[in-house]
């Protein structure tokens, strides 16, 4: 069993960027997107996010399951949110289509527009977030966070986490095999939730305790190298080139512009397409 982050965007235009760019773009894009409820602006942001995603060079066949899972989850969230809050669009005159039986929620042109904007917001955030999963080399996460100003010990922890993944995934598979040889399958899909949780204890417990006990060598090695006593250097050197700066400045400008517009214009309010209002009026 090979549990490791998939570096699917290797060699793509986005993967050649400084990894800090990919992380900062997510932050800046989220700041920009949460200001917006006008569907027209949100559609433009979604288009920008998809264009950005396209530069990651990730084959759709490799991430089909990820997209299906993400879209299913966020669609459920948006539908439930609309069903529960369709009645509560404050300060908005609604043009109702119909009322849901039992719940009594009014489905209106405005609640559908709100749902569409919310759905686009989530999809855009996922599109901008996926490249962090697939276009940053796993070994670069530690230095990326360190160079972003995160405390060095935390960054070393992130780096160590990625380094522990392969060996722990081997231990995970070996423990499952060992339990199966003894006649117990920790991953068996039978019994109620409590029985299944208790059934996984023979996997979880030795895996966890062995990992902690086995960590002594790593701790000793770090102590012997005087970990934490001075400023740490990193083997990988990160440098922002002109393209990186342009991308960062572009997304920073977007976040700033939409933040100002959020206070001065109506982009933070719902914009309902006239055809939906007409449709509701019939």
């Amino acid at each position: 069993m090979n549990i490791a982050p998939r570096y699917l965007g290797r060699g793509s235009w986005l993967a050649r960027r400084d990894p800090r760019v990919l992380v900062l773009v997510v932050v800046l894009f989220i700041i920009a997107a949460i200001q917006v409820w006008d569907g027209r602006i949100m559609a433009a942001l979604l288009l920008l996010a998809l264009l950005y995603y396209r530069t990651a060079g990730i084959r759709f066949a490799d991430v089909r399951r990820n997209w299906i899972a993400a879209l299913t989850l966020l669609t459920i969230v948006v539908v439930v949110n609309t069903i529960l809050t369709g009645n509560r669009l404050e300060g908005v005159v609604v043009h109702p289509f119909f009322t849901l039986p039992i719940i009594g929620t009014v489905v209106s042109a405005e609640s559908l527009t709100y749902a569409a904007s919310q759905w686009m917001r989530y999809v855009a955030m996922v599109a901008v977030g996926f490249p962090v999963a697939f276009c940053v080399a796993p070994a670069d996460f530690g230095v990326t966070f360190a160079r972003l100003g995160i405390p060095e010990k935390f960054a070393v922890g992130v780096d160590l986490t990625f380094r522990f993944l392969p060996s722990l995934s081997v231990d995970y598979q070996q423990t499952i095999d060992a339990q199966r040889i003894r006649g117990h399958d920790p991953t068996a899909k039978r019994g109620g939730p409590i029985a299944r949780l208790r059934g996984i204890a023979p996997l979880l417990t030795p895996l966890t305790v062995n990992a902690i006990a086995g960590a002594e060598d790593t701790i000793d090695a770090m102590d012997l190298r005087a970990f934490g006593t001075g400023r740490r250097t990193w083997l990988r050197h990160l440098a922002l080139d002109r393209t990186d700066w342009l991308i960062l400045l572009g997304f920073a400008a977007l976040a700033l512009t939409l933040t100002i517009a959020g206070f001065t214009t109506s982009i933070s309010s719902i914009w309902t397409p006239p055809f939906l209002i007409d449709l509701a009026g019939r």
Binding site: I3, K153, V156, G157, V158, L160, T161, F162, R163, F164, L165, L168, S169, Y172, T187, K189, P193, R196, I200, L204, L207, T208, A211, I212, A215, T218, I219, M222, D223, F227, G228
Partner: peptide, 26 residues
């Protein structure tokens, strides 16, 4: 925050990541 803190934290996070592939619906 010592080397022990960092290593235990990294092991816990890696274990959580590896085992997070395993879940089931209530």
């Amino acid at each position: 925050v010592t080397s022990r803190t960092i290593v235990y934290a990294a092991i816990g996070a890696a274990l959580y990541g590896v085992l997070s592939l395993f879940s089931f619906l209530l």
